[in-house]
């Protein structure tokens, strides 16, 4: 059906529902995923369709139920398990990074773990230091986890279906500020046309969401929409920005990034994760390792949270999380 728009939350739950219809091994568990439909709506409507056997509310026992997802996956099930906010990983990280991420390798490739760990990320609505982080860089740092970070409903559906079908552990990060929730302001560009039929989007393919010639903005998730707004403003002054939405961090589409930088000669990374030792450094390193072919026309710029916890107070939060104006002014500086 043409012109059917979905919010990202609806696209995610539709993708899960379609895979649950296809494959009895797929099931969902997590805190408030059933009756509530997920605090951020990612599992909305699933309980009514599939019942409590396949859509399971859990106790607040993340180590147990995320570990259980790994255990069930090893037995051939395809669990989708939600960690309500990524910030809560601390109570269950061992199950994630020492087991979900490593059992395949440690078994010499014999143990398959088709599990999808979904989680909410991001700030911008003043939920403070323990409920506003992104942290995908931290998980991408650990070998053994595929990392998916969609920016819009169309990608969210295709990437979710790909995630469920993958025989490896996938962490799927949805930013709260693009889910299209009726109770949180969001970037409306994230709600877009989504085909009803099932489709998948392969991992490791970044998307050029806007073509440009002067500067490459490498970004992801909600920051794609901020970058687009900045690029609109820059275009008025004749500055042409190319925007790359990474979509997945593991695997990372290095070629698309490098090709763009080869074309524009300038790189700005716009990220909502912490600045140091993370995604923005990784992208900068990628270009640094390929300087001979990129003909960089000035220093790489990185926009990210300046290594402080996310403060509660609105003016402070707005200062540390890169905003449209920050992206715009940074690119202007790069052009001078």
């Amino acid at each position: 059906m043409a012109d059917r728009e979905l919010t990202m939350a609806a696209a995610i739950s539709e993708a899960i529902a379609q895979e649950m219809e296809n494959d009895d091994n797929v099931f969902v568990m997590g805190e408030d995923v059933a009756k509530y439909g997920g605090i951020f709506g990612a599992t909305g409507g699933l309980l009514d369709k599939f019942g409590t056997d396949r859509v399971m509310d859990t106790p607040i026992s993340e180590t147990a139920f995320i570990g259980a997802a790994t255990g069930a996956a090893a037995e051939g099930m395809r669990p989708i398990v939600e960690l309500m906010f990524v910030d809560f990983f601390g109570v269950c990280m061992d199950q994630i990074y020492n087991h979900m991420a490593k059992n395949t390798y440690m078994s010499g490739g014999n143990v398959k773990l088709p599990v999808v760990l979904t989680t909410a990320i991001g700030g911008g609505y003043n939920d403070a230091a323990q409920h506003s982080q992104c942290l995908y860089g931290l998980f991408a740092h650990v070998p053994g986890l595929k990392i998916v970070v969609p920016s819009n409903a169309y990608d969210a559906k295709g990437l979710m279906i790909e995630s469920i079908r993958d025989d490896n552990p996938v962490m799927y990060f949805f930013h709260k500020g693009i889910m299209g929730l009726p109770w949180m302001a969001y970037f409306t560009g994230s709600t877009n046309e989504v085909p009803e039929e099932s489709y998948s989007i392969p991992f490791g393919q970044a998307k050029v969401v806007r073509e440009g010639t002067d500067v490459t903005i490498v970004t992801l998730s909600q920051m794609v929409h901020k970058s687009t707004a900045a690029a609109d403003a820059l275009a008025e002054d004749g500055i042409s920005a190319e925007i790359i939405d990474l979509r997945t961090l593991v695997p990372l589409d290095r070629e698309t990034v490098l090709n763009s930088v080869r074309k524009t000669g300038r790189l700005c990374v716009a990220d909502e994760d912490y600045l140091s030792f993370g995604l923005s450094g990784e992208i900068a390193a990628l270009v640094a390792e390929n300087l001979d072919s990129t003909n960089l026309n000035g220093s790489v710029k990185r926009l990210a949270v300046p290594d402080v916890p996310i403060p509660y107070s609105r003016p402070l939060e707005q200062t540390v999380i890169p905003q449209v104006a920050h992206i715009e002014s940074t690119v202007r500086e790069m052009m001078n």
């Binding site: 910030d87 809560f88 109570v91 003043n126 403070a128 409920h131 509660y312 107070s313 003016p315 402070l316």
Partner: peptide, 29 residues
């Protein structure tokens, strides 16, 4: 989120700390 708050506005309602009253709390269950 004001500077006169317990944590100068940095903590917010789930993250209240008072050294004088020996009080702390957390948003993590």
């Amino acid at each position: 989120g004001k500077v006169t708050g317990l944590g100068r506005g940095k903590g917010g309602h789930m993250h209240l700390f008072s050294v004088d009253k020996k009080f702390g709390c957390s948003g993590i269950i």
